[in-house]
Amino acid sequence: MAAINRDDVAHLAQLAHIEMSDEELESMATELAVIVDAVKSVSEAAGADVPATSHPIPLTNVMREDVVGHVLTVEEALSGAPDAADGRFKVPAILEES
């Protein structure tokens, strides 16, 4: 398992959409390296023959009937939005001006 460095953190921060300063990237890299080192034994603990557990209590086929339930009003839907216009959520431009 490779050590985690500043560039790794920068890439991860980009995937996670969190803006980080250079200092933050540095300190995060140091902290994560320690944590990753502490948890690395996990990868050797269980053999490939051990199945993964995704759900602590195994259930199957939990489904609902196709029946319409409650709906928010447009006002309720938009009530927490930082910005809205015309009954819709307003977001800044998706692409950079080119």
């Binding site: 996990v42 603990a45 269980a46 051990v50 199945p51 993964a52 557990t53 602590p56």
Partner: peptide, 10 residues
């Protein structure tokens, strides 16, 4: 791996 450890803990 962590999910497999989960099985071991169970």
């Amino acid at each position: 791996s962590a999910q497999r450890v989960r099985t071991l803990v169970q």
